[in-house]
Protein backbone atom coordinates (compact mmCIF):
# COMPACT_ATOMS: atom_id res chain seq x y z
CA UNK A 1 0.00 0.00 0.00
CA UNK A 2 2.78 2.41 0.96
CA UNK A 3 4.50 2.34 -2.46
CA UNK A 4 1.17 3.18 -4.09
CA UNK A 5 0.62 6.13 -1.77
CA UNK A 6 4.13 7.41 -2.41
CA UNK A 7 3.61 7.05 -6.16
CA UNK A 8 0.35 9.00 -6.06
CA UNK A 9 1.98 11.76 -3.98
CA UNK A 10 4.90 12.04 -6.35
CA UNK A 11 2.57 12.11 -9.32
CA UNK A 12 0.72 15.01 -7.71
CA UNK A 13 3.93 16.99 -7.37
CA UNK A 14 5.01 16.03 -10.87
CA UNK A 15 1.65 17.17 -12.22
CA UNK A 16 2.11 20.55 -10.52
CA UNK A 17 5.55 20.98 -12.01
CA UNK A 18 4.58 19.58 -15.41
CA UNK A 19 1.52 21.75 -15.81
CA UNK A 20 3.53 24.86 -14.89
CA UNK A 21 6.17 23.96 -17.47
CA UNK A 22 3.39 23.42 -20.01
CA UNK A 23 1.93 26.79 -19.04
CA UNK A 24 5.33 28.44 -19.44
CA UNK A 25 5.57 26.95 -22.94
CA UNK A 26 2.09 28.08 -23.89
CA UNK A 27 0.70 24.53 -23.94
CA UNK A 28 -2.06 25.26 -21.43
CA UNK A 29 -3.65 28.44 -20.18
CA UNK A 30 -2.87 30.04 -16.85
CA UNK A 31 -6.37 29.26 -15.61
CA UNK A 32 -6.00 25.57 -16.45
CA UNK A 33 -2.66 25.57 -14.70
CA UNK A 34 -4.25 27.04 -11.57
CA UNK A 35 -6.86 24.27 -11.55
CA UNK A 36 -4.20 21.56 -11.91
CA UNK A 37 -2.16 23.14 -9.11
CA UNK A 38 -5.20 23.12 -6.85
CA UNK A 39 -5.88 19.47 -7.69
CA UNK A 40 -2.26 18.52 -7.06
CA UNK A 41 -2.33 20.36 -3.73
CA UNK A 42 -5.47 18.58 -2.57
CA UNK A 43 -4.08 15.23 -3.72
CA UNK A 44 -0.82 15.80 -1.86
CA UNK A 45 -2.45 16.68 1.44
CA UNK A 46 -4.95 13.85 1.22
CA UNK A 47 -2.40 11.14 0.41
CA UNK A 48 1.00 12.20 1.77
CA UNK A 49 0.13 12.12 5.50
CA UNK A 50 -0.60 8.40 5.24
CA UNK A 51 2.98 7.53 4.33
CA UNK A 52 4.92 10.49 5.70
CA UNK A 53 3.64 10.51 9.26
CA UNK A 54 4.79 7.78 11.59
CA UNK A 55 2.43 6.65 14.34
CA UNK A 56 3.04 8.60 17.52
CA UNK A 57 4.87 6.63 20.20
Amino acid sequence: MKPLLITVSMLALAAALGSSIACANGGITAETNKLILLGATVAWFVVAPFWMLKPRP
Partner: peptide, 8 residues
Protein backbone atom coordinates in the same frame (compact mmCIF):
# COMPACT_ATOMS: atom_id res chain seq x y z
CA UNK B 1 -0.04 33.15 -10.80
CA UNK B 2 -1.11 30.04 -8.88
CA UNK B 3 -4.70 30.72 -7.79
CA UNK B 4 -6.02 28.96 -4.70
CA UNK B 5 -2.96 26.72 -4.48
CA UNK B 6 -0.83 29.86 -4.20
CA UNK B 7 -3.05 31.26 -1.48
CA UNK B 8 -2.76 27.96 0.38
Amino acid sequence: VAGWAGIA
